Amino acid sequence: MITVVGESLIDLVGSAGERTFAALPGGSPANVAVGLARLGNQVTLATHLGDDTLGRLVREHLEHSGVRIRILPGAKEPTSLAIATLDTDGVADYDFRVAWDIHEPPVLDDSCRAVHTGSLATTLAPGADVLEAFLAAERARGAVTLSLDPNIRPSLLPSRTEVVARVERQVAMVDVVKVSTEDLRLLYPGEKDTEVARRWLASGPALVVVTRGGAGACAVTAAGEVRQPASRVDAVDTVGAGDAFTAGILDWLGQAGLLGGARRGQLAGLDRTALGDLLRTASVIAGITCTRQGAEPPTRTEVAA
């Protein structure tokens, strides 16, 4: 079983200059949970949802996909909202109406083998401080694989110096990091993504994956480094594509028996052949998601087809 911790929200998705928006369930951690569940994994999403119309829409979407929902103790806030405006290439620019004020982290079931988090949940105070302490405690306990996608949202963040410091602390606590080149350009302007990936790897993780949009992805472990081109698809939009890629990574690791604290050494030993297969699988999953409006990742049957 995999536990995902983080925000659930509604994406209002529309094209630049248009007045009509579609209300689609989203939130990076919620999207990852849906992606994992549709691939057949047992998934719990620890999150915040308001007791309102938007919250009910998100809840129905999650439950229909097979995600178990656990509401974290925290302030009584309405369900969060993200306004995604698409350019002519289907790339989204986001504006957020979001709060992340949780008071306690999740309590993990004994069957849990991995925890994934990231995005607003690990950067937006005060909830981010709760989650960071949780990651540190779980790293010390050593029972589960810890996964992070920083998924930087600059419109909601403090100074770049503060964000870099927080992200680097969290990267050093986890086993798997997935990050986009867009995120890395915000964190480290002018630096090569592969150089950052190697530096992050040396700070603690066993696996670092960098996604490059249409240019593909690369993965780095102590045992190897590989680059993989992107799947070629007729994209409708890119909403949720990175989250689908993350779900693909975690699903591949689960299928390979590499989730759980005791598997960390094997995870760090993934060679070029294994990394290439991991990236190809995740790329297909993300590519299918790009052919649909909103964050709608595929099932395992669709991936096989």
Rank of each mutant, 00 (worst) to 15 (best):
G261R: 03
V220E: 02
T299P: 00
K192S: 14
L81R: 03
N41T: 11
L207I: 11
G55D: 04
F21Y: 08
T3F: 05
S180N: 10
A215G: 07
R292N: 07
R264V: 03
A37T: 08
Q42F: 08
V67T: 06
R19W: 04
V163L: 14
L81W: 02
R153W: 04
A274P: 05
P297E: 01
V220L: 11
D271P: 06
S203D: 08
I2Q: 00
A304E: 14
P25D: 04
P106I: 13
L62Q: 05
L258H: 03
T79V: 10
D149Y: 06
I288Y: 05
E191N: 09
T44Q: 11
M1A: 15
P205L: 07
C112K: 04
V34G: 01
G248R: 06
L108N: 04
L253F: 07
L36C: 10
P126M: 08
G224P: 05
R38Y: 05
A197F: 04
S15F: 10
S155C: 06
A304N: 13
V5E: 01
D243C: 09
V13F: 03
G269R: 10
P297H: 00
T47N: 10
L267I: 07
V58I: 13
E296N: 14
E104T: 12
I249L: 13
D251G: 07
G260N: 07
A46Y: 01
V98L: 15
L157T: 03
R198T: 11
A206G: 13
R198L: 14
R153L: 07
G240L: 06
L156K: 04
A206E: 05
L278G: 02
G27E: 00
L57A: 11
A33G: 10
R227K: 06
L250Y: 02
I152H: 02
D234L: 14
R59G: 06
R56G: 03
S283N: 10
D87Q: 11
T79D: 01
S28Q: 08
V171I: 15
R160H: 10
R212H: 11
T299W: 07
E191Y: 01
L267Y: 04
A230R: 06
H48V: 11
D277Y: 07
A23N: 04
G265H: 11
G66E: 07
R199H: 09
T85E: 09
E18T: 13
L270C: 11
D110C: 13
F245P: 00
D89M: 15
W252Y: 15
G257A: 13
A22T: 05
S203G: 12
T301L: 14
W252P: 00
T301M: 08
P189M: 05
A33E: 02
R59N: 07
I102S: 03
P154L: 11
R272D: 13
A295H: 02
P297Q: 03
L148C: 08
D87I: 14
N41V: 13
R59H: 09
D175N: 13
P229E: 02
G260R: 03
V98C: 15
S283F: 08
T273I: 13
A84N: 03
D93Q: 14
A172R: 09
K192C: 09
V210T: 08
A22V: 12
Y188A: 04
Q170L: 12
G214H: 12
A114N: 03
A295I: 10
E302I: 14
E225N: 07
T79I: 12
V176W: 00
R272E: 15
A121K: 03
L9N: 00
R97M: 15
V5W: 01
Q42T: 14
C290I: 12
R70W: 08
R272G: 12
